[in-house]
């Protein structure tokens, strides 16, 4: 589904990603953990080309994405959803308009069908009754659930989550995590960057530990959390627990 090979990224002189190799298989949930500044967000943003990188390749659904091919990138993004730390809902649109914007404007789905679909996904995140509200009237947790519904409404083959709960008050984290857990159960393919270790352990099929632009260690949650092999992983985990 996603194949990343020898990915390298610089911000000016700053070498942020130093040769990343990563595969994400269908129906798999990959969780990326690591210290602040280790390059987790940058890696996620390179997958859907919000960030351009200097070396390496990203292959999605069997196609190597060409970085100067805008058309190809836009086409790829239909299949790769993204949920942001700060939600990034469109404030001038209602909840339902937010959710159907992509399907109608990008996929050309007739409005009537898109509304039906939009309501289905809003129901799924438990916010159907808010369809006519504007984002400013929602709590952080509700905003993030709308953002998830917006991503789902594109019916992507994979969704990228960049710290979906980091901007939330502690009491609102649970409702968002439970939506993501439900998606995991249904077999949605996902790549999740998070600092919620309990959640990572519960939802991940595979955990990736990143430090300083490289993947230090990866494996199933029990392996990474209970018996990490690398010293750096051990240090990181002992600091945050």
């Amino acid at each position: 589904m996603i194949k990343i090979r020898e990915l390298e990224k610089w911000f000016g002189n700053l070498h942020v990603l130093k040769g990343i190799n990563l595969d994400v298989n269908p129906r798999e949930v990959v969780v990326i953990i690591g210290a602040s500044g280790s390059g987790k967000s940058t890696l996620l943003r390179c997958i859907n080309f919000l960030e351009k990188f200097q070396k390496g390749t990203v292959e999605i659904d069997g196609k190597v994405i060409e970085k100067n091919n805008e058309k190809m990138i836009n086409e790829m993004r239909i299949h790769v959803g993204m949920v942001f730390q700060h939600f990034n809902l469109f404030p001038h649109m209602t909840v339902l308009q937010n959710v159907i914007e992509g399907p109608t404007q990008v996929k050309g789905i007739p409005k009537k069908d898109a509304i039906k679909m939009g309501r289905y996904y809003l129901e799924k995140v438990g916010l159907l009754e808010k369809e006519n509200s504007y984002p400013s009237m929602l709590s952080g947790g509700q905003k993030q659930r709308v953002a998830i519904a917006r991503a789902l409404a594109m019916e992507p083959s994979v969704i990228l989550f960049d710290e979906p709960t980091s901007a939330l008050d502690p009491e609102l984290v649970g409702e968002v995590l439970s939506v993501i857990k439900d998606l995991a159960k249904e077999g949605m393919t996902m790549v999740v960057v998070t600092h919620e270790m309990g959640f990572a352990r519960e939802v991940a099929d595979r955990v990736i530990y990143m430090d300083d632009g490289i993947i230090v260690e990866e494996g199933c949650p029990n392996k990474i959390f209970d018996e990490p092999k690398m010293q750096r992983t051990q240090d990181f985990l002992s600091q945050i627990w």
Binding site: V80, M82, N88, P91, K107
Partner: peptide, 24 residues
């Protein structure tokens, strides 16, 4: 983030401008 959210849905730059950025 508004432009990024729009682009991540697959919108072209111009469509994102017209539908998301300019109205705001």
């Amino acid at each position: 983030g508004q432009m990024e959210a729009a682009r991540s849905l697959g919108m072209t730059y111009y469509k994102a401008m017209r539908r998301i950025i300019l109205p705001q």
